[in-house]
Structures are given as C-alpha cells and as structure tokens.
Nucleic acid binder design. Structure first.
Length: 113
DNA sequence: CATCTGACCTAGT
DNA sequence: AACTAGGCCAGAT
C-alpha cells in the first residue's frame, strides 16, 4: 500500500488527531500504522505542515522513539510543545516526556482497541 | 544538476 | 546488547 503525498499527509494528520489527550505517540508508530514504516522522517515533514490546518493537529502529542520533544524547536512561541503537553497533564523534563511508556499511545488502537 | 540535511525508524551483523 | 548501514521524500545550498 503506497500513499500519495496528499494521502500521506492526510493520514498523518488524521491519525495524529486521533491521539487522545494525556497521551503521546511516535513517528514510527504513525508511519507504520499508515503503511509507511521506515518513512518516519516524512511524518515529521508532514506534521511540519500541520500548523494552520483545520481542524488543528495536536502535533505536540507526537514525540520521537525516546519520548524526546525533538520537534519542540519548530513549534510556535505561542504554543510550545512541552507547554501544550503539560496543559494535558503530561509532564516534561528537558524536552523529554516523563513516563513516556505510560503515556505512550499506539495508533493501532485508533481503529481496533 | 549534485550534494547534504532533516520533527526518525528498521534491519543486519 | 552495541554498532553499522539503509531507507524514505522534500527542502535548502
């Protein structure tokens, strides 16, 4: 299953929007869920375009494999990544999610659970 | 046009 | 378990 750039971006957005509050997901999980395992980089690239999208995409709920807020540097000053996470109850320390394994949410639960 | 980099992960040894 | 190599597409130089 191969997705077009538009479908890929949409898939990433839709899947990211499915991430429940107080939870976080990873690029690989999303990429793997949409059938783009290995293309994790594109997930970040797509999420980079999430700003200004309607409905808004909680890209702040997406972190890397280690729970590091690697994308925080690309977030707007009005909506810092770590801050939005804290707004949902997720604790962050040094650009790293606290209890990552506990707040980790697998996109697979989006349509299976 | 060619080369390197980037919100990263998976596979092989 | 630790290390090395490959993938994936687009943007920037």
């Amino acid at each position: 299953m191969k997705l077009s750039p538009e479908e890929f971006k949409q898939a990433v957005f839709d899947l990211t929007r499915l991430i429940p509050s107080g939870r976080v997901s990873t690029y690989g999980a999303i990429a793997h869920c949409i059938g783009a395992s290995g293309a994790s980089r594109r997930v970040g690239w797509a999420l980079n375009q999430c700003f200004g999208e309607i409905p808004p995409v909680p890209a702040h709920r997406v972190v890397n494999r280690l729970g590091l807020l690697t994308g925080a540097v690309h977030f707007p000053d009005d909506a810092p990544m770590a801050r939005q996470l804290r707004e949902e109850g997720i604790q962050v320390a040094d650009n790293q999610v606290v209890g990552f394994d506990e707040v980790f949410w697998d996109p697979w639960e989006a349509g299976n659970g």
